[in-house]
């Protein structure tokens, strides 16, 4: 019996002890051979250039169409926020209808210090809190690093929604399971772009493989200053922002 089999057998047995699972998880995380497959092959990610986004909301519409996200303006796999930082340092953030349709003006132009749009989506964290807390393992990471939800497994406890720091998840009103961005897994595995990237008129969204040396995303990461959202939580997001303002949370 090799080491890998031994570890998984041990963690299987530990399941029947109180808190055994915790030890099992420790064992697994210590054994690198179990996660080795995640390092080779493709690792999909997205880059977002804030200075390019015009806040048109086409991405939100395209996402809802492509992925059959409930149409009513409450559930989003991706959405656009508008930030207005006023001269008196007050910060106004809006995302009416997730950014579909025009952002209505609420601030006099002479009061605006700076303003910009921020598209948001699931960050497909390398260290995803949602997958960690899912009691039945319905949320998981694929070998490509994409966080998916198995809707036939999800029991609908909402713990993952509580654990996501980015508000990227919602409870599907008909399926009663957690739902979120899949990075258009069904498209990218066929060599296509995610729907939001496809329709972005400014190419503010850049999709690519982190393990590839030459891709629009690799170039973006090489040429620009990159930030991620809430880095202090150590979720290791794989949505990379350029020109990200400090006010964005």
């Amino acid at each position: 019996m090799n080491r890998r089999n031994f570890v998984s057998l041990l963690s299987q047995l530990l399941v029947f002890l109180p808190f055994g699972g915790t030890f099992g998880a420790f064992l697994k995380s210590a054994d690198k051979s179990l996660t080795a497959e995640a390092v080779t092959g493709q690792r999909y990610a997205m880059g977002i250039q804030i200075s390019e986004c015009i806040g048109c909301g086409r991405c939100v519409v395209a996402c809802k169409t492509e992925n059959n996200v409930p149409r009513k303006p409450f559930f989003f796999r991706t959405w656009v926020e508008r930030y207005i930082i006023k001269k008196d340092d007050e910060v106004i953030v809006q995302s009416k209808d997730g950014g579909v349709g025009a952002f209505t003006e609420t601030v006099k132009e002479k009061d605006i210090l700076r303003s910009f749009f921020v598209p948001k989506l699931c960050n497909h964290c390398d260290n995803p809190p949602c997958a960690q807390v899912c009691p039945v393992g319905a949320t998981f990471q694929t070998v490509e690093g994409i966080v998916l939800v198995d809707e036939n497994r999800c029991i609908g406890c909402s713990y993952c929604i509580q654990a996501c720091p980015y508000g990227a998840r919602y409870m599907h009103p008909e399926k009663h399971t957690a739902d979120k961005c899949t990075l258009c897994y069904h498209r990218i595995k066929k060599g296509m772009l995610p729907a939001c990237v496809e329709v972005c008129p400014m190419q503010a969204r850049v999709f690519g493989d982190l393990n590839s040396g030459a891709s629009p995303l690799a170039r973006l990461k090489r040429m620009k200053n990159i930030s991620v959202l809430k880095p202090g939580l150590n979720t290791k997001p794989k949505v990379f922002y350029t020109d990200l303002d400090g006010e964005v949370r």
Partner: peptide, 16 residues
Amino acid sequence: IFLTPNLSSAMAMFGF
């Protein structure tokens, strides 16, 4: 939750 728990989840410990 009881029969096929996810080992890293605090909530999955409920069964035990």
